[in-house]
Design a protein around this nucleic acid. Structure first.
Lengths: 247, 247
DNA sequence: CCAAAAGTGTTGATGCTACACCCATGA
DNA sequence: TCATGGGTGTAGCATCAACACTTTTGG
């Protein structure tokens, strides 16, 4: 992250990660405060996505995993590429330039960034970003803060990709705890799609897929009827080729 | 393309284009013979996708357009990014290394490539690659030749993206002449999807979209009943927001 | 007893699939 | 006259959207 460690970094290619998190009722996007991460005192309170230049010997997805590990402490989580962002003017904003000059070995370099999106459930894991915890935070999914560089554009593409995938691949379960209620699943779909879905029809369709297995657990301590908890039958799903639609 | 011209090239980022073409009955992929393109005599008959390093001041899609123009003479054609390919070992094959050493200013550099796919109709345009015409050729869509670098992987991703888009966006028309018969459209869909589609149902669905306008032309010189020709109502489509499915 | 979510079925409309025959043309 | 694709309709089936009330629990 600082000049000393940059020796094997490729000056022209970076990775930025859009991390979506769900806490059971709200969808969030992980952002961090730039200057504090690097212990600078630029008076720069700009928020950005977690990202870094790639190392010259690592694969793109490997680099994305490394970055995610560094900022969240998590590994082995869902991660997928959403494309390259290479507008030549993506780095020219004043604050962005100051930051680059302070941090990068070659601050003038043209940088193309490869976007990734990741999915985690906030409850299951505890985010422990090594040393920076106060400066890593969740931004509201439907109202993401203004970010540095072209990072809002990257977030928008990630949202688009997430929406497109939701009904064709079982990505939703990555955002939920292993055992979840149909209500949580419903809330998640509604938030991602940003539209009202009929609750009963949703429930029927989901159960009809055959990939939700009842557990013998129920919700505890809720001031209303306890919901059965389900789990996603990942193995069964993987065995059936993915000619499948989640709706 | 040669060392003299590389002064403003970024050594770490390239573009490769998968150009799909349709001649009314067959789907093709554009490939070229590597050594001849650069007038080398390496005894290298490897086929590759059209591609090049990017210039440091150009946008990614601009670079893709430049490359396409150079190899086909065409501009303003459908072009869309399919993602970044950055496996660190994507350049290590023996023949690929020899070629890089002969052509690149910095042949050892780690190169990440951004894949694009393009759609053209072979009949409407005449491909006139400046100077290299004999070495630019069409490879069969369902049986693409073995290519250098990781280009077969890029082609496979492009095919996947094309299939995914075909029913949600009106990309098919990019591959057809402005006036086309329903039979051509049908053939095209069948080839891209690689499956049998019911001819009557296909016809009905397409017409029901309301975006196919009858022209007053018919086929000429065919040994059977002449088909009406249709045209895609692009303006009408663009005016309706793209909440639309082409099936 | 109140608030909040859980759970549960039916009906009408729409859309999809499957399927076969005659027509026009050029060779 | 033959080969080739052009053009046409329907019936049964499956799927989807729309819709409201009772139950359980904690506070």
């Amino acid at each position: 992250m600082n000049k000393k460690m940059s020796s094997h970094m490729n000056p022209n290619v970076s990775i930025d990660c859009v991390v979506f998190g769900f806490d059971g009722s709200e969808l969030k996007v992980l952002v961090l405060q730039r200057d504090l991460r690097d212990n600078l005192a630029l008076g720069d309170d700009t928020l950005v996505l977690p990202g870094d230049l790639i190392l010259d010997n690592e694969d793109l997805s490997e680099a994305a995993g490394r970055i995610l590990k560094a900022f969240t402490g998590l590994k082995n989580i869902f991660l997928e590429q959403i494309g390259a962002f290479g507008n030549p003017s993506r780095l020219i904003k004043e604050k962005d330039r100051l930051w680059l000059e302070a941090v990068r070995k070659d601050p003038e370099a043209r940088v193309i960034t490869i976007g990734y999106f990741a999915l985690i459930n906030i409850k299951n894991y505890k985010i422990k970003p090594a040393g920076f915890d106060k400066h890593v935070m969740w931004s509201d999914y439907h109202n993401v803060s203004t970010l540095g560089f072209d990072h809002n554009q990257i977030v928008n593409r990630a949202k688009q990709v997430l929406r497109d995938k939701l009904y064709r691949e079982p990505v939703g379960f990555e955002l939920l705890p292993r055992h979840f209620s149909l209500h949580q699943l419903y809330t998640l779909y509604s938030k991602i799609m940003d539209e009202d879905i009929d609750r009963r029809n949703f429930r029927r369709r989901m159960l009809k897929t055959g990939f939700l297995k009842e557990t013998d657990e129920v919700q505890e301590g809720v001031p209303h009827k306890r919901a059965k908890l389900y789990t996603f039958a990942k193995k069964e799903f993987d065995n059936l080729g993915a000619n499948f639609k989640f709706y």
